[in-house]
Nucleic acid binder design. Structure first.
Length: 646
RNA sequence: GCUGGAGUAGCUCAGUCCGGUAGAGCAGCCGCCUUGUAAGCGGCCGGUCGCAGGUUCGAAUCCUGUCUCCAGCUCCA
């Protein structure tokens, strides 16, 4: 940070004097500017360098322009739409005659290298609306964006339509008058294309214009760009690492679960080892719900039409429901949610204000007809089990209940070693039920609770459930995608629709408020995220096999069996590898299966009642008394420790 | 649902462009070896080439349809 001196000096001169490394752009009084800009005397000037996240973002945005120039050079007649920077990279959308092939991407990348080598300058201009319209007379998407400026469409701001100012950025080859590329753009940009040091095109795919499936599909090219070859390689390595952690791949390698084609898309079957992980999580969930005053309930998988009509699902959720089954003249639907059943548990008798809040919980398996093309391993399925609870409380209890739920969430996630990465507050959607006043009440309660719990959050306008606003907590998967896990929803509608009541202290009938909440979200998705989070190397308490005893030779099998039995008696999931492989092969197998502890036993161990403990880390410890190991691992499991004891 | 890509043994993949009745490694099974910290050796088994049509004397290979998966878009826990 510096104060700009008086007198006309642009960013180039300023940064030269400040000897900043790798300057990319300026932030002048909080506004991003090109290095070529001349900050007014006395203004606050901050130099953005190429390794700042902002600097990378600007450079990636510039790389998107280079991509567009390359495509326009190679594919005459191509229309270009938008090309923003995104996390770790950039993309650009085009309308072209045919989708891009991998070979196309190679050609385009080569062309981009040429443009970078030409070191074309980025030059800003503000030609005014009419001139801009003239410039893009053959570019319908650009014309549409420019038209949006007049209507004050904020969403288009980043495409060069900030406020009423229309700005263009031109690239020019040295010594030529005509620009080789012009784009509508807010900027800023790097000074010249040569500043894009290392980049790679990653993939192409279809993408709807403005993300609207009713609008034409454009062809999007994704790329990544970095300030150095090393940084690019590090990123590519990260992508590979992410692929190694992919829960679908790990699940196959560790024999956790599968999706047989004959069952149907998005419907998983759990193998014994995956089932252990899942059950361990479910047991944890049940135990914690019990501690926090939730009462278990059970409900069926199907319910008659009238139930779903009353709840509003048939009006607002039907496209996500499997079609009706007809039995004895009645229509039954597979449940997409558990809430109507829990509502009926509440309504099964009269309720007093004295017993509120009432908290019902169920690991309820629901079925949703997700559109084909959206299912994804365990992270997006059609049959899922929610750790679903419904809290029925008085209106004055809502905020405290939500604070309690958030506390619960933190305790639960902390136990498994996940941090809630992102919290979103979603407000009333277009399709919704209920009186606006009730929505207002609910939407006031949520931020209040979040603030009281000290949680940072972002607002997603219009993303709420049809019956109420919600808090969603997202976790990141191995390749940086966010997955919605926990959801907490405030609902005034279902109590109304089902006519729920309690008697208050004056004998009057009052309507309770409902809080819907699932902390894992779905057990399937949560498990999938955890598999990626741990890359299959679960902490001991979650590991399918917690210890494998490895006899060195056949004569040690009996002793190994005794060790395993002793561990088993202590509740440890222990096995003996009595295959006729060599010890090295057994260790390798244990290592690949990511078993927390391998216990190697030979003559030395058998004669002294000890084991050699070889943890996954490979740091072996010899001469550990069997009893000591058993005590240690049992304590580690019971405490649900995330780090190994050895 | 949309755009593109891909389906060959349990897994990873070769063969497909230029039709001539399928091949490797790992896994599995059997046997030998009796092992001291990430793959001992030998043998055997294993595929209606996703499915259904079509073209052809002949189809894993070419054509059409369909299912599933993958990436992205859209939508969601």
């Amino acid at each position: 940070m510096a104060v700009a001196p008086d007198g006309v000096k642009d960013g180039f001169q300023l940064t030269k004097e400040a000897s900043a490394s790798g300057p990319v752009a300026l932030v002048v009084d909080g506004a991003q500017r090109d290095l070529a800009a001349v900050p007014p005397g006395g203004s606050d000037v901050h130099v953005v360098t190429q390794t700042d996240e902002l600097g990378r973002e600007i450079m990636r945005h510039s790389a998107a322009h280079v991509l567009a120039q390359a495509v326009l050079r190679l594919y005459p007649g191509a229309k270009y739409a938008i090309g923003p920077p995104i996390e770790d990279g950039f993309y650009y959308d085009f309308e072209v005659a045919a989708p891009f092939t991998p070979e196309d991407l190679e050609r385009i990348e080569a062309e981009m290298r040429a443009i970078v080598a030409e070191n074309q300058r980025f030059e800003r201009s503000e030609p005014g609306r009419d001139a801009a319209l003239e410039t893009f007379v053959d570019q319908p998407y650009k014309l549409e964006i420019i038209s949006g400026v007049a209507e004050g469409a904020d969403a288009l701001e980043q495409q060069g339509a900030s406020g009423a100012t229309i700005s263009l950025y031109s690239n020019r080859r040295a010594g030529e008058d005509e620009p080789s590329f012009v784009d509508l753009c807010r900027g800023p940009h790097v000074p010249a294309t040569g500043r894009i040091r290392a980049f790679k095109l990653l993939r192409s795919s279809g993408a709807y214009w403005r993300g609207d499936e009713h609008k034409p599909m454009l062809q999007r090219i994704y790329g990544t760009a970095w300030e150095s070859k090393d940084a690019l390689n590090a990123y590519l390595h990260r992508l590979e690492e992410a692929e190694r952690r992919d829960h679908r791949r790990v699940g196959r390698e560790l024999d956790l679960y599968s999706w047989p084609e004959e069952v149907g898309p998005g419907l998983a079957i759990w193998h014994p080892k995956g089932a252990v992980v899942r059950k361990t999580l479910e047991d944890l969930s049940r135990a914690m719900h019990h501690e926090r005053g939730y009462e278990p309930v059970y409900s069926p998988h199907i319910g008659k039409r009238t139930l779903w009509a009353t709840s509003g699902h048939l009006d607002f959720y039907k496209e996500s429901m499997y079609p009706a089954m007809r039995v004895e003249g009645a229509e039954y639907f597979l449940k997409p949610m558990n809430c109507p059943f829990h509502v009926l548990v509440f309504r099964s008798r009269t309720r007093s204000y004295r017993e509120l809040p009432v908290r019902f919980s169920e690991l309820g398996t629901v079925y949703r007809y997700e559109r084909s093309g959206t299912v994804h391993g365990l992270l997006r399925v059609r049959g899922m089990t929610q750790d679903d609870s419904h809290i029925f409380c008085r209106p004055d209890q809502v905020v405290d209940e939500m604070v309690e739920v958030i506390d619960f969430l933190r305790a639960l996630y902390g136990t498994v070693g996940l941090g809630p990465d992102r919290v979103r507050f979603s407000t009333k959607p277009d399709k919704s039920v209920g009186a606006p006043e009730l929505w207002d009440l609910a939407e006031e309660a949520i931020p209040k609770a979040l603030q009281k719990a000290g949680v940072d959050y972002q607002v997603d306008a219009g993303d709420g459930a049809f019956y109420g606003p919600k808090i969603d907590v997202d976790a990141r998967d191995a390749i940086g995608r966010y997955w919605q896990l926990c959801t907490i929803q405030v609902d005034f509608q279902l109590p109304e629709r089902f006519g729920l009541e309690y008697t208050d202290e004056h004998g009057a009938r009052e309507r309770p408020v409902m809080i819907h909440r699932a902390l894992f979200g779905s057990v399937e998705r949560f498990t999938g995220v955890l598999v990626e989070h741990f890359a299959g190397a679960f902490p001991t308490w979650l590991a399918p096999v917690q210890a494998v005893v490895i006899p060195i030779a056949d004569r040690h099998v009996a002793y190994a069996g005794g060790v395993a039995q002793r561990l088993h008696n202590g509740g440890v999931r222990a096995e003996v590898d009595d295959s006729d492989d060599t010890m090295g092969a057994k260790i390798r197998r244990g290592q690949l299966q990511k078993v927390p502890y391998m216990l190697i036993v030979g003559d030395a161990e058998a004669s002294t009642e000890t084991v050699s403990v070889r943890p996954r880390s490979g740091k072996e410890r010899r001469d550990v008394a069997v009893g000591d190991f058993a005590d240690t691992i049992v304590a580690e499991i019971q405490a649900r420790k995330l780090d190994p004891s050895y």
